[in-house]
Amino acid sequence: MITVMCIIHSRKTPTVWEMSRQEVLFYCKVCSCFGIDYHRLEAASKDDVCLMNVGSYNL
C-alpha cells in the first residue's frame, strides 16, 4: 500500500510489470474510486492526488 501511495503522490503513471499483483489491483481500485484514468496519472490534478491519498486510507 505504501508503494502505491508513493506512486500516486508522484503523479507518474507506474510501469505495471514492476508492481506486484496486489499493488496493481490496489492502484486500479484507488484510481477508479476517484475517477482517475489509471493510464494517465499525470493528468490528475494535485487536489485529486491529495484526495486519493487521504481517501485510500479509508478503503
Rank of each mutant, 00 (worst) to 15 (best):
M1L: 12
I2T: 11
I2V: 15
T3Q: 11
T3D: 08
V4D: 00
V4L: 01
V4S: 01
V4G: 01
V4H: 01
M5E: 11
C6S: 15
C6K: 08
C6N: 11
C6P: 06
C6G: 09
C6I: 10
C6Y: 09
I7M: 07
H9V: 05
H9C: 11
S10A: 11
S10Y: 00
S10Q: 05
R11W: 05
K12T: 14
K12Y: 12
K12S: 11
K12G: 06
K12W: 12
T13Q: 07
P14I: 03
T15P: 02
T15L: 14
V16P: 03
V16A: 15
V16G: 08
W17L: 12
W17N: 15
W17H: 15
W17V: 15
E18R: 11
M19E: 03
M19R: 03
S20Y: 02
S20W: 00
R21V: 14
R21A: 14
Q22L: 13
Q22V: 09
E23C: 07
E23G: 04
V24F: 01
V24Q: 00
V24P: 05
V24D: 04
L25K: 08
F26Y: 10
F26V: 08
Y27H: 01
C28I: 12
C28R: 07
C28S: 12
C28P: 00
K29M: 08
K29C: 05
K29Y: 04
V30T: 07
V30E: 08
V30R: 00
V30F: 07
C31A: 07
C31L: 05
S32R: 13
S32W: 09
C33W: 10
C33A: 10
C33G: 09
C33M: 12
F34T: 02
G35T: 08
I36P: 04
I36M: 08
I36E: 06
Y38L: 12
H39C: 15
H39Y: 14
H39S: 14
H39I: 12
R40M: 10
R40V: 05
L41M: 07
L41Y: 00
E42Q: 05
E42W: 07
E42N: 06
E42H: 02
E42L: 04
E42D: 13
S45Y: 07
S45K: 02
K46I: 04
K46W: 09
K46S: 12
D47M: 08
D47K: 09
D47L: 01
D48N: 10
D48M: 11
V49Q: 07
V49A: 09
V49E: 08
V49W: 03
V49Y: 01
V49G: 01
V49S: 07
C50W: 10
C50K: 15
L51A: 13
L51M: 10
L51C: 09
M52W: 06
M52H: 00
M52T: 06
M52Y: 02
M52Q: 04
M52R: 05
N53G: 10
N53C: 13
V54H: 03
V54I: 15
V54Y: 07
G55S: 01
G55Q: 06
S56P: 00
S56I: 02
S56M: 04
S56G: 06
S56C: 13
Y57H: 14
Y57N: 13
N58V: 11
N58L: 12
L59C: 05
L59D: 09
L59V: 07
L59T: 07
